[in-house]
């Protein structure tokens, strides 16, 4: 029984793919923050500075959830060696437009918003 449980846990640990919460607020990528925090982020520079993401490492099979909590629209896409790997398409602000992208291939990605080129992070998929 115990072994079974351990096996199940190990299996689930191995197979469990993580979903990274990527919030876009005040024309920046902010990692793993709540919607409430995101709403206040534009007025709080310190908070922004603390949660701002510029580099990110994930595993193959992991996913990133792109959440636009900004006041403006964004269009995020992923590139490896200037080759387009995924396109989140235009996300107007609001909870109904969240999208999940699964990362299936290894490589060093550049994730950038097409409307606001300053929103840019380096993503390493291993």
């Amino acid at each position: 029984m115990k072994t079974c449980l351990i096996l199940l846990l190990t299996f689930s640990a191995v197979t469990h793919a993580e979903v990274f919460r990527m919030v876009q607020a005040d024309k920046t990528f902010l990692g793993n923050i709540t919607d409430k925090e995101a709403a206040a982020a534009s007025d709080d520079n310190d908070f922004e500075e603390k949660h701002k993401i510029e580099n990110l490492n994930v595993k193959v099979g992991d996913s990133i959830q792109f959440i636009n909590r900004d006041e403006v629209s964004h269009n995020v896409s992923g590139w490896v060696n200037e080759k387009n790997i995924f396109d989140v398409k235009i996300q107007a602000p609001g909870a109904t437009n969240d999208r999940v992208i699964e990362l299936k291939t290894k490589g060093e990605y550049i994730i950038q918003c097409a409307i606001h080129p300053k929103m840019k992070i380096k993503l390493k998929v291993e």
Partner: peptide, 16 residues
């Protein structure tokens, strides 16, 4: 600021 943001977004739509 909102005006310039809007201009950027509209421009992007235009591009698409």
């Amino acid at each position: 600021t909102a005006l310039s943001d809007d201009a950027a977004e509209v421009g992007y739509h235009f591009r698409l």
